[in-house]
Nucleic acid binder design. Structure first.
Length: 433
RNA sequence: GCCCGGGUGGUGUAGUGGCCCAUCAUACAACCCUGUCACGGUUGUGACGCGGGUUCAAAUCCCGCCUCGGGCGCCA
């Protein structure tokens, strides 16, 4: 296949072999068109029945949609062809036949439900708008990595098989590790913290996290991709600055490098890079403003978690990304540092108007306070000794956050369901493919 | 974990007790058509998630199961 030409590169006057999938065949009688699709686009192949060898015409027109073929021929300029050029075939090689009945329609004439699409993801991904989501996801990860490097971070990879959970509370997937009890890690939290005390100081990780919660919503996955950041000698304000920079870098990367993909999604005109300087609202201010919207039957009081309905009402009012800061200590995990007033924590969330994207904060780096925190949350510090003991050997002040990659893709592209942002999602019922 | 709402040809749908051996689109098959670009036209193929019940009569009502989607809680 070294001589294969992409459809997008086929220029008039060239003698080429194009290879790809049969998108459609339109037989008008004396003339017929085969639309051939590859990753770069589509090209029309013309069959004039009177002027061509019968077996060539027969091979071409007997094909089923989505069969894979290689067509050799001359590229001609033709105003009446959809792309302005068409291939006049000299030979056709059928490389892989497709069954006549497809489990979904890659040409997009008939919709398929998400579950049908996920069951047949390969075919689903032959649609340009579905491909676009994953091209954009890839570009997002690329620009995020670049921004982290600009921030002076080292990329790390931490274990996903662990002996104990991170924070307690969240359900973990148990597994057997050579006869011992083990779990799939819910977050790289503790490991990335250990790295700020190492010579690396500032790190990031992009990797899977596993949550065994039996939720069934369009914004939760049981296996998700977490974009994690942690830095020594940072406080929560520094961490928020880094967070904002990374989110904006992701949008910028896509605005700069994914115009075709945005076009395929019908977003070329509407896509906007958010303005820097995301508002930073205190938890107290947030509950007041949510109460003022009147969206909730019962007003929120200090110490409540923010209900989904309240988050949405406030998000609509604010209309852009915003941070929620100064959360009550009691509803943040033990590793988040308290402020001087120990009712308040340094924890923050980054919200998109639709939903939460990031959770972060300054961390408790004082050994004794950390141990107290474990005990207050009913966790046994002994189980986490691999973690706590490093706080006895010079753990600097530090801060960081975790960002849901799929949630970022979802909110950026306005996807209705987070499963659209994962090739092969794992949710309450789906374990295959 | 608690609570709602669905499952009809390959795909997406219409159909709330008899007018339904089930509508429409797409697909597939055959025929017609020399510039389609969601090509068009004619004819045909193909389905009520599973099990039980109510009824003279069930896609439609009831029960159980399976399965899918959603809401809440929690969270990324």
């Amino acid at each position: 296949m070294e001589s294969r030409t992409y459809t997008a590169d086929a220029a008039p006057g060239d003698s080429v072999t194009v290879a790809g999938w049969v998108h459609e065949i339109r037989d008008l009688g004396g003339i017929a068109f085969l639309i051939l699709r590859d990753t770069t686009g589509k090209i029309q192949v013309k069959f004039e029945k009177d002027g061509m060898a019968d077996d060539l015409v027969e091979t071409g027109l007997d094909l089923h949609r989505e069969s894979v073929v290689a067509v050799g021929g001359d590229v001609e300029e033709e105003d009446r062809a959809p792309t302005g050029v068409e291939v006049v075939p000299e030979n056709i090689e059928v490389l892989a036949e497709a069954d006549p009945e497809l489990p979904l329609d890659p040409s997009g004439k008939v919709d398929a439900e998400l579950s049908t699409r996920l069951d047949n993801r390969t075919l689903d991904l032959r649609k340009a708008e579905v491909q676009a989501v994953f091209e954009i996801r890839a570009e997002l990860l690329r620009s995020v990595r670049e921004q982290f490097r600009d921030l002076g971070c080292t990329e790390i990879n931490t274990p996903k098989i662990v002996a104990t959970g991170t924070e307690g509370g969240t359900e973990l997937f148990p597994i057997t590790y050579f006869g011992r009890e083990a779990f799939m890690n819910q977050s790289p939290q503790l490991f990335k913290q250990l790295m700020v005390g190492s010579g690396l100081e500032r790190v990031f990780e992009i990797g899977p996290i596993f949550r065994a919660e039996e939720h069934n919503t369009p914004r939760h996955l049981n296996e998700a991709t977490s974009i994690d950041f942690e830095s020594a000698f940072y406080d929560e304000h520094d961490a928020m600055d880094a967070c904002e920079a990374v989110v904006i870098a992701a949008y910028e990367g896509i605005a700069e490098n994914c115009q075709d993909e945005l076009e395929a999604l019908g977003m070329a005109d509407s896509f906007e890079v958010p303005d820097a300087g995301f508002p930073r609202l205190s938890y107290e201010e947030v509950i007041e403003r949510i109460n003022a919207t009147g969206a909730l039957d019962e007003p929120l009081v200090w110490g409540d978690d923010l209900p989904t309905e309240g988050e949405r009402a406030l998000g609509e009012e604010i209309g852009e990304h915003y941070f929620i800061t100064e959360w009550p200590s009691e509803i943040k995990p033990f590793y988040i540092m308290d402020k001087e007033d120990d009712e308040l924590s340094t924890g923050f969330d980054l919200m998109h108007p639709r939903l939460e994207l990031v959770s972060g904060g300054q961390r408790e780096h004082r050994h004794d306070r950390l141990i107290e925190g474990f005990e207050q949350q009913g966790l046994e510090p002994e189980a986490f000794e691999y973690y706590t003991k490093m706080f006895r050997y010079g753990m600097p002040p530090h801060a960081g956050w975790g960002l849901g990659a799929e949630r970022l893709v979802m909110t950026m592209l306005g996807l209705d369901n987070i499963r659209e942002a994962v090739l092969f999602p794992r949710d309450r019922q789906r374990l295959s493919p």
